[in-house]
Structures are given as structure tokens and as C-alpha cells.
């Protein structure tokens, strides 16, 4: 069962999560009662890394036009900064007393805080990246919504010109996202939906062309219109399913049944 929903987040957090768990277990089993070594240097390395993350994080916030990211990311940065301070305090306390129990608690609290804060930050960033893909998906939905008002060949050519780059981007982004996910069921749904969209797109265009040609010839267009609408609706459903799955981050037990 995957704990982290993307491979990138997993590769960043898993090693530290394992180490923190070990420390917590040692503490809970009261096997950490011996003298602690001098932790000044590793704590300084964490402090420097945190200072860099805060700098890079603020730049990301300032350069982003995603209001949700701008609103949520500062709290994650503060959490990491606060945790870093706890580690510095723990190190100072352990220097004075290598057997200090409050220092050990601070060390654990700090390490957990770094893990939690970094996790929140990565999730915040990841959700923002997902929103970018969803924005592209919604552009495709907007184009599909106007498929039924296309009545001339000129409009159809423009429709294809507008839709094609959007579909290409969605296809590329969803394909890359699918490869990033750790959850196999979510990956499979994205692959299936994307394949359907790729298959349906040329059929829809063909259906629209038939409708436009029949209309130009003054022939009956009821069936051609129904066919076109059905294909547009199918594509809309597939894109909506992609949007739904892109937003899933938690493990859903039922989906494995």
C-alpha cells in the first residue's frame, strides 16, 4: 500500500520518515537514555537547508499566480522553521546535559515537525501542479461544450486548431502525471481515460465534419447531430474522470476490491 501518492514525494520523505520512526521507537522503549552525541553539526546542516527552503519557498510563492498556493504554503514554511528552532534548542540542551530528557523530546518534536512541515509543503506544491493540469483539462471541456454549435467548415477548422494544442498538452501532462503516481488503480484509470480521449478525438472531428457537410447540402442532420453530441459527451465524461482522479491523493480501500 503506497504511503505517499507520488514517486517524487515518496523519494523525498521516505528516508527521513524511516529514521524518525526509529528515533521515536527508541524513545518510547526507553532505549535512548544514554548520552547523546554532539549534534551541533548535523543540526546546523538542517538549519542551513531550512533557510534555503524558506528562501526558495518564498520565491515560489511570490512567482505563483495560484492563490491557493500563495495562501497555504507560508504555513508549511513556518512549520519547518519552527521545527528547525526546536532542533537547535535540543542540540544546545544536549550540549549542556547529554542525558536531558526534555532535550530528547524536543529532538523528536523537531524531527517530526520537519517531516510534517516538508510533507505539507510538498503536498501544497503538488496540488498546485495538479491544478495546472486541471486548468488545461477544463479548457478542453470548454471547447467540447461548443462542438454542437459548429455549423460551417470554417468554424470546424478553427475548432480543430483551438482544440488540438489543448488536447496535446493534456495528453502530455496526464501521461507524465500517471507515471508519477504510486497508486496503481489511479494510474490505470488515467491511462484508460487518456486512451479513450485520444481515440474519440478524431472520431468526434469526423462526426462534426459529416454534420457540417450534410447541413451544407441541405440534408437531414438529426442523426449526425446526435452522433456528434454523443461523442462530445463521451469525451467530456472521460476528461471529467481524469480531473476526478488527478485530485485523489488518499488510498481508497474500496478501489482494490
Amino acid at each position: 500500500m503506497p504511503v505517499f501518492h507520488t514517486k517524487t514525494i515518496e523519494s523525498i520523505l521516505e528516508p527521513v520518515a524511516q529514521q524518525v520512526s526509529r528515533l521515536v521507537i527508541l524513545h518510547e522503549e526507553a532505549e535512548d537514555g544514554n548520552a547523546m552525541p554532539n549534534l551541533e553539526r548535523p543540526v546546523l546542516a538542517v538549519s542551513n537547508a531550512v533557510a534555503n527552503l524558506v528562501k526558495v519557498g518564498r520565491e515560489t510563492i511570490n512567482n505563483s499566480d495560484d492563490q491557493i498556493l500563495r495562501q497555504e504554503m507560508p504555513a508549511s514554511l513556518q512549520r519547518v522553521e519552527k521545527a528547525s528552532k526546536l532542533l537547535e534548542e535540543a542540540s544546545a540542551m544536549l550540549n549542556a546535559d547529554p542525558y536531558s530528557q526534555p532535550a530528547r523530546k524536543k529532538l523528536i518534536e523537531g524531527a517530526r515537525g520537519i517531516l510534517q512541515g516538508t510533507s505539507n509543503l510538498l503536498l501544497c506544491f503538488d496540488e498546485s501542479e495538479v491544478r495546472k493540469i486541471i486548468k488545461e483539462c477544463k479548457k478542453v471541456l470548454d471547447y467540447l461544450a461548443v462542438a454542437e454549435v459548429i455549423e460551417t467548415m470554417e468554424d470546424l477548422v478553427q475548432f480543430v486548431k483551438d482544440l488540438s494544442p489543448c488536447l496535446t498538452k493534456v495528453s502530455r501532462d496526464v501521461d507524465a502525471r500517471e507515471k508519477e503516481l504510486t497508486h496503481m488503480v489511479h494510474r490505470e484509470i488515467l491511462v484508460r481515460c487518456l486512451d479513450s480521449v485520444k481515440t474519440l478525438a478524431p472520431i468526434l472531428i469526423c462526426g462534426m465534419k459529416i454534420y457540417v457537410q450534410l447541413l451544407a447540402q441541405g440534408k437531414k442532420v438529426d442523426e449526425a447531430g446526435e452522433n456528434r453530441n454523443y461523442l462530445a459527451a463521451r469525451m467530456t465524461d472521460e476528461i471529467n474522470e481524469i480531473i476526478r482522479v488527478l485530485q485523489l491523493t488518499t488510498y481508497d480501500e474500496d478501489e482494490w476490491d
Binding site: P15, V16, R22, E31, N34, A45, A49, L107, T118
Partner: peptide
């Protein structure tokens, strides 16, 4: 993305710190 690299640096540094704390305990227990 730079933010991912920065986050990675933190977790590597924190893992090293915690590992040092754990290792010292195990040696002495």
C-alpha cells in the same frame, strides 16, 4: 523544480541528524 531540491536537502540533513542520534543510542545500549 528548485523547491523539490530544497526539500530533498532538508530531509537528507534531518535523516543524517536522526541517524546520528539513533546510532549513538544503539552503540551504548
Amino acid at each position: 523544480e528548485m523547491i523539490l531540491d530544497a526539500a530533498k536537502s532538508i530531509t537528507i540533513a534531518t535523516a543524517a541528524l536522526v541517524k546520528a542520534a539513533c546510532a549513538a543510542q544503539r552503540e551504548l545500549v
